[in-house]
Amino acid sequence: MSAPIIEIRDVSKTYAASEARPALADLSLEVAAGEALAVLGPSGSGKSTLLNLIAGLDRPSRGTVRVAGTAVHALGEAALAGYRRERIGMVFQFFNLLDDLTVEDNVLIPAQLAGVPKAEARERANGLLTRLGIVRHARDYPGTLSGGQRQRVAVARALMNNPPLLLADEPTGALDSASAAEVRELLGALVAEGRTLVLVTHDTGLAAQCATRVIELVDGRLTRDVRNSPVAVAR
């Protein structure tokens, strides 16, 4: 098994001092490079909190979070921004595309923030949009696309800087069944390429199809951790 890309040690997260129950409690977890981890659990179990801590969008109240050797929990705001640019690609439930920008401009943003030369960035964006089958929508605005197409744009944006880690928070949660199937297939293909994926979902079908490992959180604690043979990868 390859070296862990994510190392979480004794992490707790409490949002307010008055809260009786922490969102995460003494969680320790390792994720190997190339692994596709699905995080399951009921609402309020701490799934999104875990993803936010890995993405550097939030800080643990206690414990350490390391991603590819970087102590994410100890980074300052500016360093966290750099970390997110280069190490992380994120896909959200509600796409989080900027409605004022075209599809191409949305996809270009991570590269532009990272200072990638314009021509190279455009070439990269064009390649991703082609690969994801939405290049004909490059000049369109997100509002004119279907949910599945929008999520494809979001995946293209997440892959723009070719990050070693892809994080997805309920990527099919806001989609109809046809669009959800499209996204499942897309994520499955990415996992098959060997990309490391952390996937937070309620969708057990998605987990079964894409994940090589499934964990379950209940009340902020790890209650299940099983290996999985994903359908998509197997196929």
Partner: peptide
């Protein structure tokens, strides 16, 4: 603020 959050998630630094 939501759009700003998206941009920050994509790597927009505080100074930026």
């Amino acid at each position: 603020v939501h759009d700003l959050g998206v941009l920050k998630a994509l790597g927009l630094k505080p100074r930026q």
